[in-house]
Design a binder for these strands. Structure first.
Lengths: 263, 263
DNA sequence: GAATTGTGTTCAATATATTGAATATGCTAG
DNA sequence: CTAGCATATTCAATATATTGAACACAATTC
């Protein structure tokens, strides 16, 4: 079922683009990323709906660019280190990551939570670009590079609050989300509006049972929501300490970061 | 001068390949990675020797794949988060990284050095896939994702020792290397042979003045050199403690890792 | 041991991605 | 305000990347 959707999106991108080879390459990279073990030519071609020979040439090009590794013995392909090099360069260039890291470290220490820095990418997803876990206690965690649907959880309420969607579009996209404990659209929509007035959003176990998420927007450019600071904690632990201190700390840290970009 | 060399390599890859669009895409990604600030279409096209319209279509495809970000206001392109997602998947799939990390942490603590895990990629380069810095003292460091010429420094002596190059090829490639204090080929070649007999390599300030590098191979598959553990330290500090303990620790850790892959 | 089914790979025909000239638009300078 | 020179973008002609059939080879199955 996942494959179907991927194949559809791939077909679209390839058909529409004037450089379909690039879409094929990207699809191959993502496919190799998704699977734990190296894949053979036929498998890749079949799964993506590509002609084997075309796929072979694409793979050879990717191997030449050191983005894909080729095991000559088993004739299997997998991701190669080139993708890491690109990622490192991207992280270096993103000033947000550099400035946010010390803030994440401080907040995770002070409030004993897992802190994330996230960034919107496209209209569909947010990705984790920085993380800091608190010491030794049991903690939830998310990996740098992890991708989530744009409208899910606390960050989702921020996205909904600060990007200009009309209610109709918001509703259709809301219906595609998967929660452990789905809120009704009405409740959720009210919380989105609260987010706009209070400057941060909370998800108390909706997305993942037992996990509370708090998110506050960081403004790299005025009016354009793109980044946020996120705190993750086990609901029980957070309720014991109370959410107010954490929310206040998160919001003031986020505002501090925003100011450093407004110059 | 750097541009010249890149353009040459790019031209080669494009001409030879049956999927030149992919080589163009990779070149664009690397170019965007190299520059700190976002680039315009013309700049990219000029620097890579591409036709602007072709370049435009390539960029649009990359944007559609979320590998490149496009700022509609400034019409500038930069790397996007997609590259991070790929890198994370690659790191997850590579068992070496997982197994090596705790070893790196232990060695860096015990010997107060910066530890790296490196991997050969292609015949030309090694990349840093894991790192662990020792506490608070002044330390040299290298970033995960960093790329180095295959034959440079201590890791280079390992590559030369354990891959089967004939002496002629070794010599021509040796001549292209840049060292702070270049050794003569004869001295270097002798050290390569020592590496084979003693099981680890040392670079005492050749590559970077004042920095001592020790490297020991890790064998994921018997006879195929691909990975290594590397210790970095300021020469003065290392000489005070003596290199013997460090070398022994490094070699036994590397052998331990190798055994875990031999099953 | 022959037949079958799976690989990965090559190669000439053709659908199409690439090209370069033409267009639109914005910016700077006189 | 206009001229000049950037930029991004479009479009039809053509060079070529893609295709699918044919090939070689290995691993199963009968």
């Amino acid at each position: 079922m996942n494959d179907k959707r991927d194949a559809g999106g791939l077909a679209d991108n390839i058909k529409q683009s004037k450089a379909p080879a690039i879409s094929r390459a990207a699809a191959i990279l993502r496919l190799l990323g998704k699977h734990e073990s190296p894949l053979g030519l036929q498998t890749i071609a079949r799964e993506l709906g590509l002609v084997p020979s075309t796929c072979l040439y694409a793979l050879r090009a990717l191997v030449a660019e050191e983005l894909v590794a080729f095991d000559a013995d088993t004739k299997r392909y997998s991701l190669d280190a080139g993708v890491l090099t690109l990622a490192r360069q991207w992280l270096q260039r993103d000033q947000f990551t550099d400035l946010a890291q010390p803030v994440l470290d401080r907040l995770s220490r002070e409030h004993e939570v897992t802190m994330l820095a996230v960034k919107c990418v496209g209209a569909e997803h947010i990705v984790v670009v920085g993380a800091s876990r608190a010491g030794n206690t049991l903690q939830v965690s998310a990996q740098v590079g992890g991708r989530f649907p744009a409208l899910i959880s606390a960050t989702g309420r921020c996205v909904a609050a600060y990007r200009n969607f009309d209610e109709a579009e918001l509703r259709t996209r809301f219906d595609t989300l998967r929660w452990d404990n789905p809120p009704s659209f009405e409740d959720w929509y009210r919380e989105v509006q609260e987010t706009r007035s209070q400057g941060f959003a909370v998800d108390a176990g909706n997305y993942i049972s037992g996990v509370t998420v708090v998110a506050a927007p960081v403004w790299l450019a005025p009016g354009k929501f793109s980044h946020a600071l996120v705190a993750l904690g086990l609901g029980s632990a957070l309720q014991r300490r109370g959410l107010d201190g954490l929310s206040a700390g998160l919001v003031s840290a986020a505002e501090g970061l925003s100011q450093r970009f407004s110059t």
